[in-house]
Structures are given as structure tokens and as C-alpha cells.
């Protein structure tokens, strides 16, 4: 039945995009954690520095977000076969 196959197609397509997102995650986090803080500290002396509380909010905020996004992505793929889903993408990646 065409409807069924369309549904399955969609599902595996979604699965692959989630795998893409999982692969993409570390790069986003690395950029936010490693690159952005370096751009804050512009001036010299204690006054030009970012307040530590702001830095805490930023680092831990991203941390919490990363955990939540990773959890959400895992929740979507938890029952699927990751290998099967990415085998096609593997060759192109």
C-alpha cells in the first residue's frame, strides 16, 4: 500500500535527520563553549572583565540546554536501529 510505504519512508527520513542533529551537536556546543567566551574579554583590567555570575549563567545555561537537547534526541532514536538508520548516511558523511 502506498500510504504505508510513505509513512515508513518518512520515519526513516526523520531518523536520519535526528542522527544528523546528534552529529552536529558537539560542534555547536564546542563553538558556544570554546569560542564565544574568548570574544567576551575585550578590555584590560578587572572592569572590562565579564562578571563571573554572567559567565556562570552562560556556561551552565548551555550545559543544561545541551543535556536537554541530547536527551530529546535520544528519546526520539531510543527504539530505533541507529546503525540501520545511518548506514546510508555513513557513506556520504
Amino acid at each position: 500500500m502506498p500510504r504505508t510505504s510513505l509513512f515508513l519512508e518518512r520515519k526513516s527520513y526523520r531518523m536520519r535527520r535526528i542522527m544528523d542533529a546528534i552529529r552536529f551537536m558537539p560542534f555547536v556546543c564546542a563553538a558556544l563553549w570554546m569560542v564565544v567566551p574568548l570574544m567576551w574579554s575585550g578590555g584590560q583590567g578587572a572592569h572590562a572583565a565579564t562578571p563571573l555570575s554572567a559567565a556562570l549563567w552562560y556556561i551552565f545555561g548551555i550545559w543544561a540546554l545541551a543535556v536537554m537537547v541530547s536527551f530529546a534526541l535520544w528519546w526520539r532514536i531510543r527504539s530505533g536501529d541507529v546503525d540501520a538508520a545511518v548506514s546510508a548516511a555513513d557513506t556520504s558523511a
Binding site: M34, L38, S41, A49, T50, P51, L52, S53, A54, L56
Partner: peptide, 24 residues
Amino acid sequence: TLARIDASSIGGWQAQGGRWSALI
């Protein structure tokens, strides 16, 4: 607590570029 943090001797943060990335 946050106010206390900002007021402390380590309250201003300046990432040392090389060290920050290298340690991560």
C-alpha cells in the same frame, strides 16, 4: 550568592584564550 560571587576577588572573568581552549 551571585552577588557575592561578583563581589569576590575572582568576580571578574577574563578567559585566557589559549589556556581556555587548550584545557577543554
